[in-house]
Design a protein around this nucleic acid. Sequence first.
DNA 1: TTTTATTATCGTAATATTGCGATATATAAA
DNA 2: TTTATATATCGCAATATTACGATAATAAAA
Lengths: 107, 107
Amino acid sequence: MGVTKTQIFDERQNELAHFFKVLGHPARIAILQYISKQNACICNDLVEEIGLAQATISQHLKELKSIGLLKGEIEGKRMCYCIDLDRWNALQQSLNSFFNTTKHNCC
Amino acid sequence: MGVTKTQIFDERQNELAHFFKVLGHPARIAILQYISKQNACICNDLVEEIGLAQATISQHLKELKSIGLLKGEIEGKRMCYCIDLDRWNALQQSLNSFFNTTKHNCC
DNA sequence: TTTTATTATCGTAATATTGCGATATATAAA
DNA sequence: TTTATATATCGCAATATTACGATAATAAAA
């Protein structure tokens, strides 16, 4: 086993879970915080800043791109990764919507 | 390897990531939504509702307990799992704080 | 006490994730 | 063209996660 049974959940549950999952790694949190602190981002800076190998950072960036949080623009021989603000806000809202609609209690 | 290098991140980054990680599974999203919909929750109901084995549900409940989102009370021979509203709100706030402080852009 | 019902835990198999070195690719600089 | 720099991808090893059957533990019911 070891496979998440995505077929028994609805699309929204899977999407929400995937989003949470991508944010569920300290390196990816750190990457987002660092990109935010700077005004431009270059992957190579991240390697020094975060302290993981270049291949590893590149992999984490790919996952952040997979949910649209980052957009990359080629800038000469460099890559400029930035936060996609529209997506960022949309995700925050989607997440708050989950929190607000799922908080009834019993005991 | 396969080990997250938690030691190179700060406590807040690790905590935030752990929180996101726990929410990063559709079964756990579904569990929270179901508990919320009901006014009381019994694990056995979840097994029928979600469609995973009892052992698996129990495991997911344990992880939700690990971040304090659920509290369980023994009720006869049953277990009543409920959402801890204080913790729920605190986590929502912590999450919004992350989103609000990490959203500057460049391109 | 015995049985039944409910939940937790253990052990295990399958798959996923993390991390890294090596290498490929692409562009700028020399 | 050659070299240097920056990023992506491949392949692999180590560890984590997911799922489940079997079983333990606990308490109500018979």
